[in-house]
Design a protein around this nucleic acid. Structure first.
Lengths: 335, 335
DNA sequence: CAGAGGAGTCGAAGCGCTTCGACAAGGCGG
DNA sequence: CCGCCTTGTCGAAGCGCTTCGACTCCTCTG
């Protein structure tokens, strides 16, 4: 193992000089710098992470906590996680992966031991048990999601209410007067994550303004559940011509069932999805959709977090503006 | 911040005693132990990770490297990652998430700096660029997958060849004489990950023994790609009555297209999938499938890795035995 | 031409923990 | 009843790095 001291000796300078070359915290003459850097390369020196963390009380590690709810849509989480890791690296940080298994106290452990400098929380509930612990710790934190009480945290999320109203506007603009919303699985609502409700609220209130009737049905992402939900919807509201789907697992079942039912998309029925772009593109029909910008959320979260670590950012609620892209699954309401 | 010394003082013992209570590496009388543990709780002491790593040259961190190929099936990766993290915690380890973005040298950085004690590599290619670096580092490593050259590593993977032959046996046993295999996307084969080829090989050789003809078609997981592949298959081999699908994104398109084509599953066509259990269960038809045991793979990988860290395990190739579960998508060949 | 101040470097003091050797106190066999 | 081993505890020496103050040259400025 090569140490700082070895490099210093090899370059004929003191250890502190090498350290300053590495950190750039003091001016070092160009010659010395070159010499030191050459020695570093020559010896294949890599600073010891533990020693660094101990001396500087900074680990350059961000903890990413993602509880694993099987009912939660996994690809979005994964995309965010990957993007967080990639982004963090660009700032010189690594990412520690925390699952929900350990419970809220994982936050305390990781932050209290100095293992992580800061925390990103995913899948945040309205009244999340991890938040008090995090607040107490005083460490920088960013939430992906929007809890009831945001003081002390920066929150990054899609403006789901806005997404809902965009869907309402789109369908209303195409002449639809009765629409149904296929929501997330009931378990998601029970868990009180907030985003599902916000979407419905946004959809509802804009629809009301535009004179459109809305029927909302939470639904699991299986064929069976979808079939039953669809049956109920058409029984209760035979005039429904537009669908908004938030549960991405339900998208294919819905399309498939409509097809079986001999209802053409978009001629008879228009479908708008709230989902990641990939899902909108890869199905049997290219879906008109409001994209869930996973990468963008991750990028914002990391950038904010780094800024907070460096003491140059305040708490803030960042709601990303949703965009609706019209594709092949929506069209004018039938006459 | 509470330190070991604070605890020692509070308990009226020396720092080393506290350390030994924590690590259990020397015998400590029950009374002292109680007293120390009480002080720890009282003060809310958490050992500093950096100091610990520095002094013991063990970070208790495992690096999990998962390159992000968009063509790779994401949920399996995610399931493995989560299971790795959860399992590692049970052994007192945390997991550092590495993406492919940084390139193979990420391995060197993380291991050379002492940030991670060991490494788990996912999505291993036959001739993976990360392997030489890892070998050189001398750190314990487990690969999830099977490269061409395994010396120096423990490898954990599903016996995909066995999975292939199970599929052949199942379909042959039901009387099918001509089967088609829908493989992974062409990009997967080009990347030389090995598992896709092994499945085909296993399927082919067992099929030959059983007198079954096999047609193999790599296929992307989109409707369009599937439609075209299916057209070609039935043109080339009109007598095909059995399908083996390895690309899980292709499963729903296949079923949907067969339905459209008025070919009933399982009456006219039998379908066997190689996929995680969840995928087999949640579609429009409950699929006969060979499960990809993501969690089990993760568990084995972590257990082996920990054993290697503690110096009590050798390199080994662990191929998990595949199991075929018969469900609603396969039945006797039509007469 | 003296003094101020900047640039470049060094030495040393930790950071909080682990671990090794030492040592005191008691239990045992011979 | 002495020496020996075991058990329980302590002190001190690091682990490899960061960082603060101090010091030495220079280069300006008045």
């Amino acid at each position: 193992m090569v140490t700082l001291a070895d490099v210093a000796q090899h370059a004929g300078v003191s250890a502190s000089t090498v350290s300053y070359v590495l950190s750039g915290k003091r001016t070092i003459s160009e010659v010395t710098k070159q010499r030191v850097e050459h020695s570093i390369r020559e010896l294949g020196y890599l600073p010891n992470a533990g020693a660094r963390a101990l001396a500087s009380s900074r680990s350059n590690i961000i903890a990413l906590m993602m509880p694993l709810r099987t009912d939660m849509y996994v690809p979005v989480m994964m995309e965010i996680a990957i993007a967080v890791a990639t982004n963090a690296r660009e700032h010189g940080f690594d990412v520690l992966m925390l699952t929900g298994e350990e419970g809220p106290s994982a936050v305390r452990r990781v932050v209290g031991s100095g293992l992580a400098d800061a925390v990103i929380l995913m899948d945040v509930e309205l009244d999340d048990a991890r938040l008090p612990l995090l607040r107490e710790s005083g460490r920088p934190a960013v939430l992906i999601g929007l809890p009831a009480q945001t003081t002390g945290f920066t929150c990054v999320d899609l403006d789901f209410a806005g997404a809902g109203s965009l869907c309402a506007e789109h369908l209303a603009g195409l002449g639809h007067r009765e629409i149904a919303m296929i929501g997330e699985a009931p378990a998601v609502y029970e868990r009180k994550t907030g985003f599902a409700e916000r979407t419905v609220d946004g959809l509802r209130s804009r629809a009301r303004e535009l004179g459109v009737r809305v029927l909302h049905r939470p639904c699991e992402g299986t064929y069976a559940a979808m079939a039953s939900a669809l049956g109920q919807i058409f029984t209760e509201r035979p005039g429904v011509t537009g669908f908004v789907v938030q549960n991405e697992q339900a998208v294919e079942p819905l399309l498939s069932l409509l097809r079986q039912d001999r209802r053409a998309v978009p001629e008879d029925i228009s479908v708008v999805a709230v989902c990641p772009e990939q899902v909108a593109l890869q199905g049997s029909v290219r879906l008109t959709s409001v994209t869930i910008p996973a990468r963008e959320m991750a990028r914002r979260a990391v950038d904010h977090l780094i800024a907070k670590i460096e003491g140059k950012a305040d708490d803030e609620v960042v709601l990303l503006q949703p965009e609706l892209v019209t594709r092949a699954s929506s069209g004018p309401a039938p006459v």
